[in-house]
Design a protein around this nucleic acid. Structure first.
Lengths: 350, 350
DNA sequence: CTGTTAGCGCCTTCAT
DNA sequence: ATGAAGGCGCTAACAG
């Protein structure tokens, strides 16, 4: 691979100055249409590619956004994948790329690493994914004068932006839905305890019951882990009890799938004998049998909004715009929920 | 955040030349111990951080490795997470970082994008994760003179390195194990059809049966998708048949879990009534009940070896070392397999 | 609209 | 062991 053409080469080829070539290529500043075309042609002919290294130094920008996350606990996760996809989407079409850092790495010492990344100019902005309750590290960056946005955690700090999902609102909507249907005996499959989302959903569960004067039966609140299998086993037990809930709210869709399977194994009909609601609206939630009532968590949107926010701040200069945004997770009513003891209103064949 | 200290600042502070400072900081070339200390002190005091942008341009290196993968289909995957973790581990302690690119993005057009990444000097090397059977894009890079390593696909090309798992070998070992135990009726839960690994494991399944003169019963080969749930449902049906296998080889551990659950629901004992083997040795395979016999796929190792290979090539200059490496996935015999119709040899309490 | 000048911060080379 | 000179490729700022 021979060293690629430089701006200088194009300048020579066209007889123009390097500046004119630079302007023509970057579409910035004045440049005659005629020369722009000539430059474009020469660039194509020479197969010119910017040397980003030079561009970076010259413009004092890395053209990179850093994504900081607890890789170990998150990477194999649909949630995180979607966030990255969203961020990726926001960046496609720009000169920006994503760089990945591990907040659980030994080298991370309390975020010092990140601060250095910024000061080293390796990244122009940071997307901090902080799903765990004990993630204090976003605060490390509070005084870092660098575009930064926290995803999946609502940091109430004037200088730190965040994008989060309104878990409480959405979980409340689900619970309201179940209550409206007439359910009085509602069970809950909690998510991983150390994850903020999970605790917010449980909070909403308890609160909504209280609001309606319904009892909170601790025996019906089971410690899930967001995964199908644990949910399956827990539900198998829960639904075998003499006194069992008529509806179950699972804190994630995979868990809801597990509950559905358990119900089926026990010869319980969903939703006739037991209503089941999930949370996420992940792939397959619409196609499963019965299609799942859930909250459509806009995961991709999280990444998209976060990345766009950073791009905005980078482009509009020093204007310190801070966003504190809670995205809606709209209630999606499908066929896994119905009034207790009743057939569903509509029934699709499958 | 004020602009960080530069080498110039340290030079002024110590009264030395920039070069001496540079040498002292990078531990390259001659430098008196005395000055080295003074420089170190000044650097600490001024909180100096290299400006990577400058270093990059000067040394014509991006200090970045690109990871190219079909994000959509892979990111939410344990497999990919481990690969990234491994690569990450190899890089920690170096100046290198990871950058993430999507081979399914519309901007990717046949790898052109990547080639440009390289020519733009945004990355110094490429880790190409190509798990799908129709991933032709590794070949796009065959003539690209840039450190490149394909992960999860055995590309038989002289100029392209790869690191892969020996799926055929490991799957064969599992099958041999089952056959040795005396099983003659063995079923198979296949993985996603478009994934290379899956087809290799199926191949080994068929071949080993043939080797031992055992019949390949097509009805016992079921189309899984690597996930628990599908496996659960398929196994539920398979194990309910009058004529059912005495052992089942699932092409992934999660699927094996699904089979175990199905067996339990059907009141079949594992391994007394049916032996079950998986593939992966993922988290939980040792702790589940019964502990799973499986092949320990070294996923982290994939990323580690790949990244180290790139680092080697980058550091040893133009020596065109190419590696074609198939990592072993050692057979791990636990308690989910036993001779047909017999109690297991050992039994742990739980 | 175009060109000149200068510099980003580091590192390589060579001279001292 | 240290320093001086110069360049990496691009772009900002200013001049024409």
């Amino acid at each position: 691979m021979k060293p690629p053409a430089t701006i200088m080469n194009i300048a020579r080829a066209t007889g123009l100055s390097r500046m004119t070539v630079s302007r023509a290529l970057s579409n910035k500043g004045y440049c005659s249409e005629h020369n722009r075309k000539r430059v474009g042609a020469a660039a194509k002919k020479l197969d010119y590619q910017v040397n980003m290294l030079a561009r970076q130094l010259s413009s004092n920008r890395a053209y990179q956004l850093g994504v900081i996350a607890p890789i170990q606990g998150l990477l194999g996760t649909f949630y995180f994948g979607q966030i990255l996809l969203g961020a990726h989407g926001a960046l496609s079409g720009t000169d920006y790329h994503l760089s990945l850092f591990d907040s659980q790495s030994e080298h991370f010492n309390e975020g010092r690493k990140c601060i250095n990344l910024c000061r080293q100019r390796r990244v122009d902005g940071l997307i901090v994914v902080a799903p765990f309750l004990n993630d204090r590290f976003p605060m490390t960056f509070a005084n870092l004068d660098m575009p930064l946005v926290v995803v999946g955690s609502s940091i109430d700090h004037k200088t730190v932006s965040y994008v989060d999902v309104d878990n409480v609102g959405a979980a409340t909507a689900i619970m309201e839905h179940l209550v409206q249907l007439g359910h009085k005996k509602i069970g809950f499959l909690a998510g991983v305890r150390v994850v903020r989302d999970a605790s917010e959903r449980e909070l909403a569960f308890r609160k909504t019951l209280a609001t309606h004067g319904l009892p909170v039966v601790e025996d019906w609140i089971l410690p899930g882990d967001y995964e199908v299998r644990k949910a399956f086993h827990l539900a198998l037990e829960l639904l075998s009890r003499r006194d069992r809930p008529t509806a179950i709210f699972a804190a994630s869709d995979p868990m809801a799938f597990g509950v559905i399977d358990a119900a089926r194994v026990l010869n319980l009909r969903v939703p006739e004998d037991v209503s089941i609601a999930g949370f996420d609206d992940t792939a397959g939630s619409a196609e499963c049998s019965p299609p799942l009532t859930t909250a459509a968590q806009p995961m991709k949107q999280l990444g998209l909004v976060a990345a766009n926010h950073l791009l905005d701040r980078l482009n509009q200069g020093s204007a310190h715009t801070i966003i504190h945004q809670k995205l809606e997770a709209p209630l999606v009513i499908r066929e896994s929920t119905a009034p207790p003891g009743l057939r569903p209103l509509q029934r699709r064949s499958r």
